[in-house]
Design a protein around this nucleic acid. Sequence first.
DNA 1: TTGTAGGCGTTATCAA
DNA 2: TTGATAACGCCTACAA
Lengths: 337, 337
Amino acid sequence: MVTIKEIAKKAGVSPSTVSRVISDNSRISDETKKKIRKIMEEMDYYPNVMARSLVSKATKTIGIIMPYSTEKAFANPFFPEVLRGISKAANNHGYFILLSSGDTEKEQIESLYSLVRGSRVDGVIVTYFKIDDPIFQQLKKIKVPFSIIGRPLKLKGINYVDNDNVKAAYKAVKFLIDRGHRRIGLIRGSSDFTVFVDRYEGYKKALEDKGLALDEEIIVSNRFEQEGGCRSMKKMLKSSQTPSAVLVTDDLIAFDLMRVAKELGYKIPDDISIVSFNNTMPLCELSSPPLTSIEIHPYKLGFNAVEILLEEIKGKRKPGKKVIETEIVHRKSVCEK
Amino acid sequence: MVTIKEIAKKAGVSPSTVSRVISDNSRISDETKKKIRKIMEEMDYYPNVMARSLVSKATKTIGIIMPYSTEKAFANPFFPEVLRGISKAANNHGYFILLSSGDTEKEQIESLYSLVRGSRVDGVIVTYFKIDDPIFQQLKKIKVPFSIIGRPLKLKGINYVDNDNVKAAYKAVKFLIDRGHRRIGLIRGSSDFTVFVDRYEGYKKALEDKGLALDEEIIVSNRFEQEGGCRSMKKMLKSSQTPSAVLVTDDLIAFDLMRVAKELGYKIPDDISIVSFNNTMPLCELSSPPLTSIEIHPYKLGFNAVEILLEEIKGKRKPGKKVIETEIVHRKSVCEK
DNA sequence: TTGTAGGCGTTATCAA
DNA sequence: TTGATAACGCCTACAA
């Protein structure tokens, strides 16, 4: 491994001169610069990042935290897509990305801890927001710059990127109402995540604004537990008055719903219209019928999470938020009534 | 940031003593150890990784290379799944993972270069093998331990993890033949990747063994180009004698084929049976009909790529390979003839 | 069992 | 415009 010293020796100058050439310091003669650059080339020199970080206190690396376990995270195409955006933005700025892992909450926290405390990263991006997740306390405690994808509960001094989920759900419900639907069900998703809370909020608001009553009978709360979820879906569909449309907070769940509905003999969209979230590709296009879904632009979410974070790291701005627009992608799972 | 020195001062010992306690050196009295550990706890000490790597020459980090662009890579659920396996194994060994990015071949190589030459990583995993991809020359040139997911062309001295793709394709074709199919088409995939070359090999071998002729008319080479792909598929389906079954080298392509086939009025599996590769979930289950596909265990591929790599890094073994078994997952896209 | 001193590869400060 | 020198935080002979 060739070092700055060896270059210096070969060039007959001091190590500091070489260092200055590397940083393109203005007070080095062009002549020396040229000479030294040539030697660096010849000797195939590359600066040692470790040594550099040791003095500069910066690693040019950001840590990424996925929901534990990474296992589940990757199952949902949302996260790879977010990662893509992060990757791209980081790359643009010459930053590297380090994936934090951990199958349990505890491992997750340990991983974060060692990442930050060991000075492996300059900042951290958390790809989700979950209420009461201890990771956020940890994050504040260890005082590392971070940004969140999702809406945190307490906003002061926190960077985050999010969709306006209230609005998105509102628009979706309005979309259904405009097409003549009056009895609209909801599959909510875990209320531990602000995403789902917000979508619920938008749903309620839209019904209210249009003078439609909220009916708990056609609101399903269960989620990730496949089993309970299916049972609740069935219950909803068989309720005293079957909904003519359902808003679902995640495509993957919507597919389950479609399956359940078909099992019970309902036709989609004739008997039941469905609008869902995430516009998961190619799933939404391939399902039958193709699913009308709300594009939330996970790539942009990731991309902007990096931008915001780096602005803070570079001291250019105070923490703030960035909202990514959403739009409904029309397919075949909704009919007019 | 609390350092070893501060701990030393507080404890009234020398920094080296503290360092020895950290590495649990056997020649430090239990008493001192206990005392110092307590102080470290109190002062919330955490060793600085950069400083440590600077002297130890190890980063406890492995770099991951996805096909450029990371963009496309994540579109195929195969890669997230591989990443999961890598992540898990790395975590088990206390290693971190650094994602290499780059939208172009050139960027990719630069990224790898700075990763390795900057001493950011102890080793590298390449998640694919592409014939003549300059990344591999680069890899050899910079002399970094690495392992590959996929079968490299020259095997000597290279770590790799792979399925036996020849065998897998062979079994798939045999499976179709056993069910009465005699005219079996193939959608090959780019011959730049050994994966696809091998699957083609297995296909040919199976036909040969069973005394069936190879018919170029029902072998489609195009791939990633959506357009040309569809046209070729149509051509195959409309060939002088439509195949009763098709082997497809990637689920995502199989879905395209299904769509094209349906457009042309063919029923699946009644008119055309399909077997494909990757067992992409939940896609394979959700498609109609659900797709019979070959599980290649991407998680295991990733997991073992790490294991092999770390064995080499730790000097425990010579480079070698590891083969991951495959199996056909039976669904509804194949019928008896 | 512990301390001293030098070094890992860079950068930054202060002189020259 | 350049060179010494110290420092970043840690590790490891070599001494004691």
